[in-house]
Amino acid sequence: MPEVFEPKIVAFFCNWCTYLAADLAGTSRIKHAPNARVIRVMCSGRVDPQFVLDAFAKGADGVLIGGCHPGDCHYQEGNYKALRRVALLRRLLKQMGIEEERFRLEWISAAEGERVKTVINDMVEKLRALGPRVQPVRKEVA
């Protein structure tokens, strides 16, 4: 066990806004916590709840979905669909005992490189405070 808990975040970023924002964070050399692993999808509307559940099942400490701001979706309204889906998913996750802070949906436009940093750093901080997820499997190992 390392001294500081380093949570691992699976991030689903939409191709047109948030993925580009992460690229912009790169070209602007905006340093941030290295805990998020980005999976590119065309639209936040593509994120199937199964992806989120699968990530948690396989041991992710947090899942982050990044999409375009409401009204700015490259596909007109995919982010609204994501938003509605997420509300339902949140309740499901709660029932499964997964803390609220572990799952986030954020609107980050292509111009908001700085916000990628803020969101990821903030999430890492919150997950650190929360500690590793307690899973039956892990308990046996420990």
Partner: peptide, 10 residues
């Protein structure tokens, strides 16, 4: 189809 994938997830 523009390929957003919203229907796929749904």
């Amino acid at each position: 189809c523009k390929g957003c994938g919203t229907c796929v997830a749904a």
